[in-house]
């Protein structure tokens, strides 16, 4: 670590062409974010006059952001409810399920395992028609619980698959010691499994949260009342407006991204590591 500065510069000299390429890619990748940010402070007239560069901060149209907060905050609240409840419930059930498969081979567990694995082959999208009818007959249409329940169910297979392998690799002695002390299975889950599998649970939580946060196909057919709209439906609704105030729309897009920006700032390492690790397992 003592030679950090010289290695940095020599590495830079050797790799500058690679840096140029990478930066080129990443800048284009970040360009939509830049446009979103700078357009959010303009009204349509300013935007048509000067689409590319940010305007003087003194003439920024902050009322776009006021409009956006007013419009988007209820959607965010609904989405947070769905994504957080769904993620917590999904992971809790998945941990219990994985524990069942990992700890003992009980009769029928092979068949049950096959029943879970078979779902990996089944693409969720082709089920959307009967799923809609099912939710209708369960009187769950136009409720947020429908989104939570479907989210929990669709996350089970992948999470159980990953967690089972992980729990099986935990040292046997830990469970035996816990059993000696008279711990029940539930206590073993809470005192052995959960403390030992922090990173993997974090990874799965992020993946599950992201998928529920980004979903819009199911909310689109389930939700009718504007009070219940999640971000997905809310944004589609905004996109459908006839006369578009791009500044307001971009501000709304930005506000919609704020929760994940906050999550990202606090869990950056977990995020980066989680996405690469989780993706390999998939």
């Amino acid at each position: 670590m003592s030679t950090v500065a010289p290695t940095l510069t020599s590495a830079w000299r050797r790799d500058w062409s690679k840096h140029v390429f990478i930066l080129f890619f990443i800048l284009i990748e970040l360009f939509p974010l830049y446009m979103m940010f700078q357009v959010s402070f303009k009204d349509n007239a300013t935007f048509i006059r000067q689409p590319w560069l940010p305007t003087n901060p003194l003439t920024w149209h902050w009322e776009n952001w006021g409009f956006a907060f007013h419009l988007i905050l209820p959607y965010i609240a609904n989405t947070v409810f769905v994504a957080v409840t769904g993620t917590v419930a999904s992971l809790f059930l998945a941990i219990l399920g994985a524990y069942f498969f990992a700890r003992h081979r009980l009769p029928c567990s092979g068949i049950l395992w096959a029943a879970f694995l078979a779902l990996m082959l089944m693409p969720g999208v082709v089920n959307i028609t009967p799923l809609f009818m099912l939710l209708k007959s369960l009187k769950l249409l136009n409720t947020l619980w429908a989104l939570v329940l479907v989210g929990v169910a669709s996350g089970q297979v992948f999470s159980i698959f990953v967690l089972r392998n992980f729990i099986e690799d935990l040292p046997r002695d830990l469970f035996e010691a816990a059993e000696m002390d008279g711990a029940s299975h539930l206590q073993q889950v809470f005192n052995v499994v959960i403390p030992m599998s922090g990173p993997i649970i974090g990874t799965l939580a992020i993946l599950s949260f992201l998928s529920m946060w980004n979903d819009f196909l199911l909310p689109l057919i389930v939700l009718r009342d504007q009070d219940l709209f999640t971000l997905g439906v809310g944004l589609i609704y905004l996109d459908g407006e006839y006369v578009k105030q791009w500044g307001q729309i971009m501000a709304a897009y930005f506000v919609a991204s704020i929760p994940l920006i906050i999550v990202f700032l606090f869990t950056m390492r977990l995020f980066v590591r989680g996405l690469s690790a989780g993706a390999i397992k998939g």
């Binding site: 970040l30 971000l231 919609a256």
Partner: peptide, 11 residues
């Protein structure tokens, strides 16, 4: 690289 992922896919 991960930064653009904080924007909802729909956005």
């Amino acid at each position: 690289l991960v930064v653009p992922m904080i924007v909802p896919g729909l956005v």
